[in-house]
Write a protein that binds this DNA or RNA. Structure first.
Length: 262
DNA sequence: TGTGATGTTGAATG
DNA sequence: GCATTCAACATCAC
């Protein structure tokens, strides 16, 4: 489920379960989920360490280790965390697990193995090399406009590109476009500044609301697109939903109800 | 049985 | 260098 608000919820969970406890051992069940070393090296690097904090940027969560290194947790499409004690509570698709001194474990579950776990020696350098954009919840209007400057891509493609800003995913992009009544296939360079300002403002409003509700979508307002994202959906003016690939992803939008800048 | 899914990356193309 | 499209990654659920 992981877009920015979901990862923010994972961060809270991580902080409540993993911090300030010595890691007795890390066990890697599936080597391929660790992207920059084999499972044995990862386990060796983590043994005896302690997480002292965490840092989230967009959909990327980093656990801060007491030796200055970080562990990147990126959840892909199906990543999840589970803190448990009894062996029978181990999640079905656990790919690796931290065993703490108190006997509890923090397991990383991921049915589709799209998650990306990386042992990061130098976080600043890593983020720079990745060209990871500013966090979508933090980015100022000025920086947002600067990123949008001259972009010929679709609005959706722009918002999804983690180099420009980090954290937006398929569902929240559709939500913001719907609520601002701007067509997701609009060309960024054809949008007046006022429209970009509305996107920026609504984006942070939506993300903030979602974060405050722990990304629990059932608690989202009834008038969000999210609630009834299906083929029967209609805009308030009765426009039936259109479903098409925009920016490479399945997109729900309303022709006419959402203004197209092209 | 086939299809697509809340994500990212790299290759190929224009 | 940019933008776009596509395939790949691997598994599950409808």
């Amino acid at each position: 489920m992981p877009e920015l608000p979901e990862v923010n919820t994972f961060q809270r969970y991580f902080d409540q379960t993993a911090l300030d406890q010595k890691i007795e051992q890390a066990q890697v069940h599936d080597d391929k989920i660790i992207r920059n070393m084999d499972g044995r090296s990862f386990a060796e690097a983590l043994a005896g360490r302690t997480f002292t904090g965490s840092y989230r940027r967009g959909k990327y969560l980093f656990g801060n280790l007491d030796n200055g290194a970080h562990v990147q947790l990126h959840f892909g499409m199906t990543g999840d965390l589970k803190y448990y004690e009894a062996p029978e509570d181990q999640p079905k698709h656990e790919r690796f697990v931290f065993l703490f001194e108190n006997g509890y474990k923090l397991g990383f579950d991921c049915p589709r193995k799209f998650a990306r776990i990386v042992y990061v020696e130098d976080l600043q350098q890593y983020i720079e090399d990745k060209q990871l954009g500013e966090d979508a919840l933090q980015i100022s209007l000025d920086d947002f406009l600067a990123q949008a400057e001259g972009k010929k891509s679709t609005l959706k493609g722009f918002l999804l590109n983690q180099k420009y800003l980090a954290g937006m995913g398929n569902l929240y992009v559709d939500e913001v476009c719907y609520q601002t009544r701007i067509h997701p296939a609009s060309r960024v360079h054809a949008m007046p500044q006022e429209a970009l300002e509305r996107i920026h403002s609504k984006m942070q409003e939506v993300l903030q609301y979602a974060v405050e509700h722990n990304a629990y979508y059932k608690a989202y307002p009834k008038d969000w697109l999210w609630k009834w994202r299906d083929e029967e959906a209609r805009a308030p003016d009765g426009t039936p939903v259109s479903i098409a690939k925009i920016g490479g992803r399945t997109t729900y939008y309303f022709v006419g109800y959402q203004k197209l800048f092209d």
